[in-house]
Simulated scan of single mutants.
Amino acid sequence: MSITINILLVDDVEYSRELLRAALLTCIREHKVEIDANFFHSSTGKSIPQQIKLNNVNLVYLDIELPHTSGLEVLKQIRGSYPDMKVVMVSGESSAENVTAAIKSGANGFIVKPFNSGRILDTLQNYLKKFHNV
């Protein structure tokens, strides 16, 4: 059984997007299910709901700190257009306020930078359980 997942990585720092992509690829390779992952990238929160539609995105990793807008505002836009979309918030700031605001806004998870591969694997497995019964 092969599963295709379209993943959108939203972070204003290219290096952070690449680290997250590499960590996700490592987790995917270690998973027992054959997964074909396609990655899409954005450095801003601009037009994210449209990018989700255009690229048929299944899973979003969204930084809280973005230029010109907050990742929390982008999350609210995503929830307005795609209420069932799996969105994991990413931040270098793991304050209780950030985590609480993300969860209240509809985030399905929260990952703190620097990335922990165990936490990334958890978010990927949660997605697979919810949408692919794996």
Rank of each mutant, 00 (worst) to 15 (best):
H132K: 12
K86L: 01
L20H: 01
S117G: 04
S47W: 09
S94Y: 09
K76G: 03
H41C: 07
V33W: 00
L121M: 13
P67Q: 04
E18Y: 08
V99P: 01
N58D: 15
P83G: 04
D11H: 09
T44C: 08
L128K: 04
Y127W: 11
T44P: 01
L75T: 01
T26Q: 14
L75G: 04
N6W: 10
K46F: 02
I3W: 04
D11L: 03
M85D: 10
T26V: 12
V10E: 07
I7L: 12
T4A: 11
N6Y: 05
A102H: 02
K130Q: 14
I120A: 00
D63A: 08
V57S: 11
S95C: 04
N58I: 10
T44E: 09
G106T: 09
N133Q: 15
S91G: 10
R79L: 03
F40N: 08
G109C: 10
E65Q: 13
D11S: 05
Y15E: 15
E97Q: 13
S70L: 03
E93R: 11
N38E: 13
S91M: 08
N108K: 10
D84Q: 14
T4N: 15
V112Q: 13
H132P: 06
L24H: 06
I7R: 08
N38T: 12
S105K: 06
N116S: 13
L72Q: 03
N58Q: 10
N56T: 12
Q50F: 11
A102N: 05
A101V: 00
N126K: 11
N56A: 11
K130C: 06
Q51P: 00
L9G: 04
N108R: 12
N58P: 03
P49F: 07
Q125I: 15
K104C: 05
E34D: 12
L128E: 07
S91N: 10
T123M: 12
Q50I: 06
E97A: 12
G92L: 07
G106E: 04
E34Q: 07
H31E: 14
E30Q: 14
Q77W: 02
Q77T: 10
I35V: 11
V60E: 09
N116D: 15
R79F: 01
V112T: 14
A23E: 09
L25Y: 00
N108F: 09
I111H: 08
R21S: 10
